[in-house]
Design a protein around this nucleic acid. Structure first.
Length: 821
RNA sequence: GCGAGUGUGGUGGAAUUGGUAUACACAUCAGACUUAAAAUCUGACGGCUUAACGGCUAUGCGGGUUCAAGUCCCGCCACUCGCACCA
């Protein structure tokens, strides 16, 4: 090493050139080593890398490089989640076809990722907008169709009448279209669904296998699936049965009204002869299709004038139309028990509907005018009242009694219900994978035969309006029916982009295979051993991927049950306490930082500033500090190397101070190994190495000092190489090594260096620290006690106690406190 | 509204199993080097108090359990993520 100054631009270019020439990160199946598949969630190619990407990909890269140093066969691929709305918006705004815009963005972002030095096997790169990718998704969908797992039904969308188009939730601003600002309405259209509810139970129980997932993500998924046990029961309404599901059959005697969705047949029937009802229904259709909105909007309802018959009492119960009941959830109707459900209570209070208490709790006062949380309690402490033969029972007895009775009289049955709904995969957009279905007047819906796949999305399109161009392209949709040969039309809807992102991780295993969706090598690499991505994907993407993996398994394409063995959910990157966004104008461009400081500095800062799971507050000054540390490290190495070869360590001649420095080195190796492998807290690993570097400044220039410095520098370079690979690659060579640092073994702890002769104990009196004492490592309790009390500041406070007791926590502290009388 | 998190110095954060709160950095201040500045190096750095030793106090707020609580329990407050067509 001749360069005395740290020159990241040159050094990083050399390292990256070397990796490229050596093809250092291309991997194949190798049954002699343990495989490790490390994956970060692939990006949407927006055109510019942002800090969230840098953080996400650095975390994954650090783990991949660390695992390689554990001797594993490591795969880390990269690709593009290339379909989606932004490309269409760009097309409308800049008059560029989405395919062209996307391809350009991919090129730009690939160059940025390369500049950051990530250890990707680029031979496996894929883009979901490539027909070679989505053809398999189309093929798989036809398999699901044949198995009955894909079906068509009506579902609601946000509809803009002015633009004649469907809007995504994010395109609805304050209930209005973002482009034309006209109010949005709900509209029902035919859409394709996949039966994820058939897999609800597996998706729920298999969460127990995922012991290397964050507990919070498992909990969120559990709640999202929302398994409940209840009763499906029938109310009679003019000879037709009105079916509802309830988890509270125990409160059935308190049901005082029913509520149905505005689109429910009963609502339509009632509105047919009643213009007031009809206009009410119209007025409440003006609502965004989003649960959060449904839950927070004002609850509105109107009496239909119709009644349903209570299945046990035979009493008539009024039926209301309500804007918070969804036709697409369950049966589109609910029974309401205002005394014991707070939403029903609020609605009943608003419209002066009767409230009948049927559950009581000893020691609590019921007041129908004021909601209290215990009204909804399901426990052994409550007792049923006003419920005839079912009086006096706690929750479970009442539930069972009423459920049995309903079953007996043929008015209901126990069922397990899920909050999870089937996955709607149709999108009325252009930039997505075409749904491979042909509609034939004679044969109905016919899947496109495998030999005709892929159904290629035309890319040479012009956006004239806001709607999908292929919907007005007869050359695309006019076709022949594969079954009867007659004239037919293609589906012009495309797939939800979650379809592509639900199986890409498996496709990396055989990205070049043009004969099959997945093969033996894909099965070898799956499941992903470490998946890294944003916490915002905790439910949807991860649940759909888990579902898809089970579908792939049941098709015989993979042999595991779950796609991602270990999951790390990274927090967001903030600036001034807020999420970085163009609209706030608080973005930081990674490229300009790389240009200024180099990739290693950017990588180091993003790993040092916060633990991966927490949000990261961006700081320009902090980046400066990271750069300063790398300069110091470089100088430490350059000075040591410049002084010539280091002598061998002479263990017997080590001074106490040398022993202490060497102990610090091996303690650091132990800590850093734990931080990388088990805890995945790279910020504390970096801090520990910084501490060690500070300590090394105490070494002199004696032989043993130089020997320890040499040992320590090698350890530091190895330990930091996953985080700052370029500088470590260079320093490793400069330390005289001819082999590549990438495949080096992770440094080992020398247990003998860790031993201590004496330990320091903290002395607490009444819980406050009053002193410290140094005792030999094998001191007995009596010796420790004596040493503790010998301190003036301790004895001073102990005297005030009178009769005292003492507790010794081995290796940690001595606690002295008043004896209990 | 529902579900899941987070909250510690001027700032980012550390404290891993209930055991020394503030590691490691950033910023600031002081000193060294310099004609000067930058860079670099050294030191100080939660608040109040003390000549000093030391003492008191502090982990969003209010309670509780414990010899001991940032950590566990109960009740609040604030913020963040998700809510099925953003990805």
């Amino acid at each position: 090493m001749t360069e005395h100054n740290y020159n990241p631009q040159a050094l990083e270019e050399n390292a990256q050139q070397y990796w490229l020439e050596q093809n250092s990160f291309a991997v194949r199946q190798d049954d002699t080593r343990e495989k490790f598949y490390c994956l970060a969630m692939f990006p949407y190619p927006s055109g510019q890398l942002h800090m969230g990407h840098v953080r996400n990909y650095t975390i994954a890269d650090v783990i991949a490089r660390y695992q390689r140093m554990q001797g594993k066969n490591v795969l880390q691929p990269m690709g593009w989640d290339a379909f989606g709305l932004p490309a269409e918006n760009a097309a409308i705004k800049h008059n560029v076809p989405p395919a062209q815009w996307t391809a350009q963005n991919i090129d730009d972002m690939r160059a940025q990722l390369r500049r950051l030095g990530f250890a990707y096997d680029w031979d496996r790169e894929l883009a979901t907008c490539d027909p070679d990718y989505y053809r398999w998704e189309q093929w798989f969908f036809t398999r699901l169709f044949e198995k009955g797992l894909a079906y068509k039904k009506k579902a609601e969308v946000n509809w803009c009448e002015t633009d004649q188009t469907v809007l995504a939730n994010e395109q609805v601003v304050d209930g209005c279209c973002w482009r034309c600002d006209n109010p949005v309405e709900r509209r029902e259209i035919d859409q394709w669904f996949i039966r994820i509810t058939d897999y609800a139970e597996q998706l729920l129980t298999d969460l127990d296998q995922l012991d290397q997932w964050p507990e919070q993500v498992r909990t969120m998924q559990r709640n999202w699936i929302g398994r409940s046990e209840g009763v499906e029961l029938d109310f009679d309404c003019n000879g037709e049965s009105l079916t509802v599901y309830t988890t509270r059959p125990d409160t059935l005697m308190g049901a005082t009204y029913m509520a149905v969705a505005p689109q429910h047949p009963i609502a339509r029937q009632a509105a047919a002869g009643d213009p007031v009802l009809a206009s009410f229904i119209e007025s409440i259709a003006n609502v965004k299709v989003a649960e959060a909105h449904m839950a927070t909007m004002e609850k509105l309802g109107m009496d239909t004038g119709l009644t349903a018959t209570h299945p046990l009492t035979g009493e008539p119960i009024p039926i209301w139309i309500a804007n918070f009941v969804l036709m697409s959830y369950g049966s589109g109707a609910v029974m309401c028990v205002p005394a014991h459900d707070d939403r029903d209570h609020a609605f009943a209070s608003k419209y002066q509907l009767p409230i009948v208490q049927v559950v009581d709790k000893p020691g609590c006062n019921y007041d129908a005018g004021v909601w209290q949380d215990w009204y909804a309690e399901k426990s052994s402490k409550t007792r049923t009242i006003n419920s005839g033969e079912f009086n006096g029972r706690h929750f479970e007895e009442a539930f069972n009694g009423i459920a049995d009775k309903l079953q007996e009289v043929g008015k209901g049955k126990r069922t397990v219900n899920y909050r999870l709904r089937d996955w709607g995969v149709s999108r009325q957009r252009y930039w997505g994978a075409p749904i491979p279905i042909i509609n034939c007047d004679a044969c109905g819906t016919v899947p496109v035969p495998e030999s005709d796949l892929p159904v290629v999305l035309p890319t040479n399109v012009a956006f004239e309006g806001v709607g999908s161009p292929i919907k007005s392209m007869p050359e695309f949709y006019e076709t022949e029916c594969p079954a009867c040969g007659g004239a037919a039309t293609r589906e012009t809807d495309t797939f939800d982009t979650f379809m592509e992102s639900s199986w890409y991780y498996a496709r990396y295993g055989c990205a070049q295979n043009d004969k099959a969706m997945l093969d033996a090598e894909a099965d070898y690499w799956t499941p992903v051993d470490q998946y890294v991505g944003g916490i915002e994907h905790a439910i949807l993407h991860l649940l759909y991927s888990r579902f898809y993996h089970k579908l792939l398994r049941d098709e015989g394409l993979v042999s595991s049950d779950e796609p991602f063995t270990r999951l790390l959910t990274q927090g967001m990157v903030l600036k001034d306490g807020a999420k970085m966004s163009k609209s706030k104008g608080n973005t930081v461009d990674p490229q300009s930082l790389i240009d200024r400081y180099g990739a290693d500095t950017v990588r180091l800062f993003s790993m040092f500033a916060a633990p991966p799971e927490q949000s990261l507050e961006w700081s320009d000054a902090g980046v400066e500090g990271a750069n300063r540390f790398l300069k110091r490290l470089w100088k430490l190495g350059a000075t040591h190397i410049g002084a010539g070869a280091a002598p061998a360590l002479d263990i017997v001649k080590l001074s106490d101070q040398q022993k202490a420095v060497r102990r610090k080195l091996h303690e650091t190796i132990a800590k850093v190994s734990d931080d990388y492998g088990r805890r995945q807290t790279f910020n504390t690993a970096i801090a520990a190495v910084m501490e060690l570097c500070n300590e090394l400044g105490r070494l002199g220039s004696e032989d043993n000092d130089r020997a320890i410095m040499d040992e320590a520098l090698r350890g530091i370079v190895l330990m930091l190489s996953p985080i700052v690979p370029h500088i470590c690659h260079t320093l490793w060579r400069a330390l005289g090594e001819s082999s590549d640092i990438l495949g080096q073994q992770w440094p080992a702890v020398d247990e003998s260096a860790l031993s201590r002769d004496s330990i320091e104990l903290v002395i607490q009196v009444k819980g406050k620290v009053r002193g410290k004492v140094s005792v030999s490592a094998d001191a007995d309790d009596a010796t420790i006690q004596q040493a503790a009390l010998a301190q003036d500041n301790v004895s001073r406070f102990v005297e005030e106690l009178g009769d005292y007791a003492m507790k010794i926590v081995p290796g940690k502290l001595v606690s002295i406190f008043p004896r209990k009388k």
